[in-house]
Each structure stands twice: as C-alpha cells, then as structure tokens.
Simulated assay, not measured.
Amino acid sequence: MSDDDYVYDEESGEWLSGTAIAARRQASEVVVRDSAGAVLADGDQVTLIKDLTVKGAGQTLKRGTVIKSIRLTGDTQEIDCRFEGISGLVLRAEFVRKR
C-alpha cells in the first residue's frame, strides 16, 4: 500500500491514506514489558522471578520455573500461558523475566 492509496476504515467510517492506516495500527499495538523492562512477544519463553500460588489449582509455581510459548492478551500487564496441570493460566508481567 502506498501513501497515495486510500482505504475505507470500517471502524471510523472514513477513507484514510496508507500512512494514516499504518500510524493507527502502530498506535494501537500494546507493548508488554517484563520485570527487567524487556519487550515480550507472542511465543516467548519466560522465567518466574517469584514463587506464585495459583488460585483454584492448589499449586505453587516456584521461582525459576520456565513458562514456554506465552501469548499476549492485549493488556499491558497480563500474559496468557499454559503449564502442566493448570488450564487458563494468566500471569502478571511484573513476575516474569524473558529468557
């Protein structure tokens, strides 16, 4: 898409230029940072920096536990992940560090 192309934006109901669409997409992206300030992305591996008690599972995840293949939720502080025996695990980004 070049700068001269116009695209109909269904959200706003307006015709916008290619640069305006690119700027809007870039502004809407959420940046999630770990406890050390590193930017997290889908599929990253993280390590827990603190023992965490998982509510409803009766289990504690120990410090140093590796969580593989995280997914960003759209919230700047929450990441979705899987761990053996725990379904629907959501961790706060402040308790993890990128590997």
Rank of each mutant, 00 (worst) to 15 (best):
D4P: 01
R99C: 05
T76N: 07
S87Y: 05
S35L: 12
T53S: 13
A23V: 02
C81A: 08
T60C: 01
T47I: 11
C81R: 03
Y6L: 01
V90M: 01
F83S: 04
D75W: 10
I67N: 04
I70S: 07
L89Y: 04
D34N: 04
V90N: 02
G58W: 11
S87P: 06
D9A: 03
S28C: 03
A41N: 11
E10N: 00
V66C: 06
D51A: 07
L89G: 06
S87H: 10
G43K: 05
T73P: 11
I21A: 11
I49A: 00
K50S: 07
V30S: 09
G43Q: 11
A27I: 00
T60G: 05
F83R: 11
V54D: 01
K50A: 02
K98M: 03
T53P: 09
K55A: 13
G58V: 08
G58Q: 12
T65H: 11
S69V: 07
D44W: 09
M1A: 10
V96C: 14
R82W: 09
D51V: 12
E84D: 15
Q59M: 13
K62A: 09
T76S: 15
A22V: 06
R25F: 13
A93R: 11
K62Q: 14
S35W: 05
S17D: 12
Q26M: 06
R63W: 04
T65C: 10
I86F: 13
R82T: 14
Q77K: 15
A57Q: 15
T65R: 15
D4Q: 12
